[in-house]
Amino acid sequence: MTIPIWIYAVVAGIVISALMAIKTGREERQLEMENIEREGEIYLERLEREKEKREELRAPGE
């Protein structure tokens, strides 16, 4: 019993599609983590600036 060639093509397409989905998912997670890290750094910088402002306002009065 022989298997038609189009079945091989369909199976190959499914495998390629699955591999591409995995690859894309990894890339998206990596970009998302980089974005989260960047936002965290911006937030920490803002907190540090606010802390410095509070210290400047407090220091001359003491």
Rank of each mutant, 00 (worst) to 15 (best):
M1W: 05
P4E: 14
P4N: 12
I5T: 05
I5M: 08
I5D: 13
W6H: 14
W6C: 04
I7F: 11
Y8I: 10
Y8A: 08
Y8E: 11
Y8S: 07
Y8Q: 10
A9S: 07
A9Q: 15
V10E: 12
V11Q: 01
V11P: 01
V11E: 03
A12I: 13
A12P: 00
G13H: 10
I14V: 15
I14D: 00
I16H: 05
S17Y: 07
S17R: 04
S17C: 10
A18T: 06
L19C: 09
M20K: 13
M20H: 04
A21N: 05
I22P: 01
K23C: 03
K23D: 01
K23T: 06
T24Q: 13
T24I: 15
R26H: 08
R26C: 09
E28N: 10
E28F: 07
R29H: 10
Q30C: 02
E32A: 15
E32N: 13
M33Y: 14
M33R: 15
M33H: 13
E37D: 08
R38V: 01
R38Q: 09
R38F: 04
E39I: 05
G40I: 01
G40A: 05
E41G: 04
E41Y: 07
E41A: 13
E41H: 11
I42A: 12
I42N: 05
I42D: 07
I42W: 08
Y43C: 03
L44M: 09
L44D: 08
E45K: 14
E45V: 03
E45G: 04
E45C: 02
R46C: 02
L47E: 11
R49C: 00
R49L: 03
R49N: 05
K51I: 01
K53C: 00
K53T: 01
R54Q: 12
E55A: 14
E56M: 06
E56Q: 11
E56T: 04
L57Q: 08
R58H: 02
R58L: 07
A59K: 14
A59C: 01
A59N: 07
P60K: 12
P60S: 11
G61D: 10
